[in-house]
Simulated assay, not measured.
Amino acid sequence: MTPRRRLLIVDDHAGFRRSARILLEAEGFVVVGESADGDSAVALATRLEPDVVLLDIVLPTTDGFDVCARLLRDQAGLRVVLTSTYDVDLLEDRVAASGAAGFIPKAELSGDAIDALIGRPA
């Protein structure tokens, strides 16, 4: 049996979190939690220990780049995948410097897209 990856979804739009959960669970991920802001995302990631965090770049009170830095500093082995409705070309330098595994536009989100960035589970 293929191991299932544990994933935390961080986005301030409840509708996107719900849609992403349904899609990614259907594709074999275990969604261990959801967060609408950066501070609760860091706290949840510490408590729930996901393998992957799907992280929106635009969040209230902070941005996803700051949250990404906090997550990667605090949790060895954690993989962060950034997402947004914005065009990655506008953010390419910041995504590259963030330490994240990569970027997936929200409209192109899928389990395969995440696996393409971080590899399939062994």
Rank of each mutant, 00 (worst) to 15 (best):
R5V: 11
R5G: 11
R6S: 11
R6F: 06
L7P: 00
L7N: 00
L7W: 00
I9G: 02
I9D: 01
V10W: 00
V10A: 02
D11P: 06
D12H: 09
D12F: 10
H13I: 11
H13M: 15
H13L: 14
R17I: 00
S19W: 04
A20L: 04
A20M: 06
R21Y: 13
L24G: 02
E27K: 04
E27S: 09
E27W: 02
G28E: 03
F29T: 03
F29D: 00
V32E: 07
S35C: 12
A36L: 09
D37S: 14
D37M: 12
D37W: 06
D37N: 15
G38E: 01
D39A: 15
D39H: 08
S40T: 15
S40E: 15
S40I: 11
V42K: 01
A43L: 14
A43T: 15
L44K: 10
T46C: 12
R47V: 12
R47S: 14
E49A: 15
P50L: 01
P50M: 01
D51A: 11
D51C: 04
V52Y: 00
V53Q: 01
V53E: 02
V53P: 03
L55H: 01
D56C: 08
I57F: 10
V58N: 12
V58T: 12
L59I: 08
L59E: 02
L59A: 08
T61M: 09
T61E: 12
T62W: 08
T62I: 13
F65Q: 03
F65I: 03
D66E: 15
V67N: 00
C68P: 01
A69H: 10
R70V: 06
R70M: 05
L71H: 05
L72T: 05
L72I: 09
R73F: 12
D74Y: 06
D74I: 01
D74S: 14
Q75I: 15
A76I: 07
A76G: 12
G77M: 05
G77P: 03
R79A: 13
V81S: 04
L82Q: 04
L82F: 04
T83Y: 01
T83L: 06
T83S: 13
S84K: 00
S84V: 00
T85P: 04
D87K: 08
V88Y: 08
D89K: 13
L91I: 09
L91W: 14
E92V: 13
R94V: 08
R94P: 05
V95D: 12
A96L: 11
S98W: 02
G99Y: 11
A101W: 02
A101R: 11
A101K: 05
A101C: 13
G102F: 02
F103E: 02
F103C: 03
I104E: 07
I104F: 05
I104G: 04
I104L: 11
A107K: 14
A107P: 03
A107H: 15
E108Y: 09
L109Q: 03
S110W: 10
A113T: 05
A113Y: 03
A113G: 10
A113F: 10
I114N: 02
I114K: 03
D115M: 14
D115A: 14
I118S: 03
P121C: 09
P121R: 13
